[in-house]
Design a binder for these strands. Structure first.
Lengths: 116, 116
DNA sequence: TAAACAGTTTAACATTTGTTTAATTGTTGA
DNA sequence: TCAACAATTAAACAAATGTTAAACTGTTTA
């Protein structure tokens, strides 16, 4: 890509190119989003949610890990707006926040699978 | 999404649902990819590369940071296959690896900008 | 070939992050 | 209301990560 860009960079006198910059807020939130996605165990949790909503004890049971651990991971995913919470009696159900996120994840998985 | 899924979870007897799992390798590489994207300064670097290839000294100059720092950040981005390296005489030019990545980034930025 | 420049690597340090265990909050049903 | 269950929180700790400064490698050109 971008193969038509000139590569003229002689000594330290670089010509400044004005780039359209995203706002600090957007960059920070995007970094948080990616950061939340950047861990194997959280990615596995999201993978389980692909199949539909799950409560904390279900996820703990399915992954054979403590509820505390699962809860803390879900908190990070929730803060990054990757999952929704919904209380249903004693249980709290977590689900993927929207179709956007499903697509983002599948894109990333597919991209990685291609480059193998 | 997934609003038609049943939420019947009584006591701890959860019914197991067989989910199609991605391989450990794919999950790990995807986590690395997201992890590399999950930091403000690296995201800013990628943003600069949206405009075309840049060498380390250019990026250091434009961001007013040390070449060492830029070089280390680029290394992480390169290891995650987010950017390509190409030597051109004294300079090493970095560029976004492919259009897939451009789309992934723009998707994420747009998603964050929407939810504000 | 040696000086100058571009880039990378290393080691040390501070900060952040993930996990464990135990205590705490919230909800239901006997 | 209180016992039992579901989930969250807090504190302590280990591991991973980002930054700085200095040493090092690679390339050009005088």
């Amino acid at each position: 890509m971008s193969s038509e860009h000139t590569l003229n960079c002689e000594s330290t006198d670089h010509q400044m190119v004005s780039v359209i910059k995203r706002s600090d807020d957007v960059i920070e939130d995007t970094a948080s989003l990616f950061s939340a996605l950047g861990e194997v165990s959280r990615l596995r949790l999201l993978e389980l949610l692909f199949d539909g909503p799950r409560c904390v004890s279900e996820l703990a049971h399915e992954t054979e890990q403590s509820m505390s651990l699962i809860s803390q991971r879900l908190k990070i995913l929730h803060q990054a707006r990757l999952v929704n919470k919904e209380r249903q009696g004693k249980h709290i159900y977590y689900s993927l926040s929207d179709e956007h996120i499903v697509q983002l994840l599948n894109n990333a998985f597919d991209h990685v699978e291609e480059h193998k």
